[in-house]
């Protein structure tokens, strides 16, 4: 579709996310009723995200930077649709493939091959479609000899490789990377970065969360910096990374 205007992949509009912080965790009925009767159900509000707005155009690679607790993971969860924002709206056009940390979508008793289809279905892909991608996945993950072994016997590196291979093989429109590139050995890191770079050419949109500014500079072309649930800086990856580096060096 020829068009001069870049298409919007993700539009985040005035998104706020509020959590009730219980002073104590209540997860059984007895405690709940005791607290309810004695009126000790105190909640304090915590705004993990506060009026966040930004847009990511198709083909852009957005880095999300921020110190621990800045709201990065919450932002990703809201974008993925795992959490509904308390206020504001998110519009996503295209298929999102989140990279689950170390094969969280796998069933450990299932073999690697069977997990390919299970993981694919979790993202909404059919068996037939996954079958057509199966050879690519096998080749990239380099676990051909172990593909019929239950995943519980895999090393964490093998799981990470398989998970990464599946999430990238399905050619999603939007790829969400949550510090996954920091797992695995150097060889796998280089290979996976190359794979992602390769996907850029196909116009994939990437959201990348990391503390590693070098990686963000290499992968992303835009970045935002979060602090206490607010966007404090927004711009090209280099600009924002410089700001982030000065913040972290100060502390």
């Amino acid at each position: 579709m020829p068009s001069n205007k870049p298409k919007t992949a993700i539009a985040v509009k005035n998104v706020s996310m509020m959590f009730n912080l219980n002073n104590e965790k209540i997860d059984n009925i007895k405690e709940y009723f005791i607290k309810l009767v004695t009126r000790k159900l105190h909640f304090s509000e915590f705004w993990a995200l506060n009026d966040i707005s930004f847009t990511v155009h198709k083909g852009e690679r957005l880095g999300v930077l921020g110190l621990n607790g800045a709201g990065k993971s919450t932002l990703l969860k809201v974008i993925c649709g795992v959490m509904k924002p308390t206020r504001g709206s998110i519009t996503v056009s295209g298929v999102i493939a989140p990279l689950l940390e170390l094969g969280a979508g796998f069933d450990s008793n299932y073999s690697g091959k069977e997990n390919v289809f299970l993981y694919g279905a979790t993202m909404g892909y059919s068996r037939k479609f996954m079958q057509s991608k199966y050879d690519d996945i096998l080749a990239f993950s380099e676990i051909k000899d172990f593909i019929d072994v239950p995943v519980k016997n895999y090393s964490s590196g093998m799981k990470a490789r398989l998970g990464f291979a599946i999430a990238t093989a399905v050619e999603p429109d939007i790829l969400i990377l949550d510090e996954v590139l920091s797992v695995g050995d150097a060889k796998f890191r280089i290979k996976s970065e190359a794979k992602i770079k390769n996907m850029f050419d196909k116009g994939i949109t990437v959201i990348f969360v990391s503390h590693n500014t070098d990686q963000v500079r290499r992968i992303c072309n835009k970045a935002i910096l979060l602090e206490k649930g607010k966007i404090v800086a927004q711009g090209t990856a280099d600009e924002v990374c410089d700001i982030y580096d000065t913040i972290t060096n100060k502390k």
């Binding site: 289809f117 299970l118 279905a121 979790t122 909404g124 068996r127």
Partner: peptide, 21 residues
Amino acid sequence: YKYRFLLSEIVRKNVRLQYRD
């Protein structure tokens, strides 16, 4: 309709795994 594959995959998984070992 989009996630019908997930439904069938989990059904398949549970049936297969039930007595696997």
